[in-house]
């Protein structure tokens, strides 16, 4: 689980081109959207693609994403439970 969280942080930085942020700067419970990392609607869609591509999880309802992408902690938990690869 700890490894997964670190892995996710790295992927978020890379996939979403968060140039000036390092893995160490993202806390497990930092909000990803809004005031936290300041991600926007396109980033949310990009995370949905990442779930599908890297973990074999398909979200059909983008609203579901909002809950899952609250923080790295919640994301990791969801992935652990639902991953197919």
């Amino acid at each position: 689980m700890g490894d997964l969280k670190e892995e996710l942080k790295g992927k978020i930085i890379e996939q979403l081109n968060l140039e000036d942020i390092t893995v160490a700067e993202i806390a497990d419970d930092d909000p990803l959207f809004g005031d936290g990392l300041g991600l926007d609607s396109i980033d949310a869609l990009e995370l949905i693609v990442m779930l599908d591509k890297d973990y074999g999880i398909r979200l059909s309802d983008p609203k579901e994403g909002r809950k899952i992408f609250e923080s790295v902690e919640i994301m990791a938990k969801y992935i652990e439970e639902h991953r197919t690869k």
Binding site: D43, L45, E46, V49, K53
Partner: peptide, 9 residues
């Protein structure tokens, strides 16, 4: 087949 919204836009 993984189209990226961040690219497509």
């Amino acid at each position: 087949y993984y189209p990226s919204p961040a690219v497509f836009v």
